[in-house]
Design a protein around this nucleic acid. Structure first.
Lengths: 148, 148
DNA sequence: TCTCTATTGCAAACGGCTTGCAGTAGTGAC
DNA sequence: GTCACTACTGCAAGCCGTTTGCAATAGAGA
């Protein structure tokens, strides 16, 4: 998504729900659009406040909560601290390296299969499927081998 | 698992690693064995301290960390607070009701399929697969229908 | 440009969890 | 059984991510 369309999307999402377009919201949005990974609130703050007018921590939290409510972003709890990324179809699952915390996105139809399987159940209606796989990335696995 | 075998299992797991069998550990273990759901640290405390000799909060955390290290229990982050349950094969996935927090276990071969698919990747070796599905349980779904 | 109020920044508070330390209680040896 | 050693516990303080109340600020429509 290029910067222009990202800005338009944010604008539309906010205004259509009667929310204002503020600097804090634009900055948080820009960081998320530019990120290729999950970011914690602190990570977002770090990427914003290189400039001369930082955004307050609590505003970032409030902004993220609003974005999540509007379906713009998705919160994950891959660890003890929450992380956020732009909303994307949940065909993508997360592979998290237990050593270096690298997060890889993996696309698979199995998530859709799972959803279909769950929809057969009479006692539960699935909404959101979150798959987290912990393991070891190529780099950390090879380091481990060298040490052994 | 009956109480006797549960006690023997705990005993063996602890002693084989040079750990002592203490009252705190037995009590936490008993609660987990008797639970049919995920329990938070506070939930475990609540179920213990009906008696006259409660266990301290920090001991419960230390005990859970030890159990996890020994592979006896598994920690999940279904929410902002961590929950624990006895370790079981990860063919079971968790269906969490967004309204009442009910957790249903759902068995499916798709987890094994996913593991096999991931093992094809050269850049990541999966260890633990955690699938969390949020949605609505039968009860809450029907309440929602009535209100609409 | 004015007005109204949603939003922000600040600072204090919250809550789950961890940690340092002194006392207690398992455990193996005798 | 009892002794000694030290792993473990309880307590209280602390940590850290997140939330909240409030006064000041800044979007947005008139």
């Amino acid at each position: 998504m290029d910067a222009y369309h990202a800005a338009v999307e944010l604008d539309a999402a906010l205004r259509s729900h009667g929310h204002r377009v503020t600097r804090a919201r634009r900055e948080v949005w820009d960081v998320l659009v530019g990120a290729d990974e999950h970011l914690s609130a602190q990570g977002i703050l770090d990427r914003i406040d290189g400039g001369d007018a930082p955004i307050n921590e609590s505003s970032v939290y409030r902004t993220l909560a609003l974005f999540a409510e509007l379906g713009l972003v998705r919160e994950s709890r891959l660890d003890e601290t929450a992380t956020w990324e732009l909303f994307h179809d949940d065909a993508a699952i997360h592979l998290v390296c237990a050593d270096c915390a690298l997060v890889i996105h993996h696309d698979t139809d199995l998530v859709h299969d799972l959803r279909r399987a769950l929809e057969q159940r009479s006692d539960f209606s699935p909404v959101d499927i979150d798959v987290r796989v912990t393991g070891r990335c190529h780099n950390c696995a090879s380091v481990g081998t060298q040490m052994a």
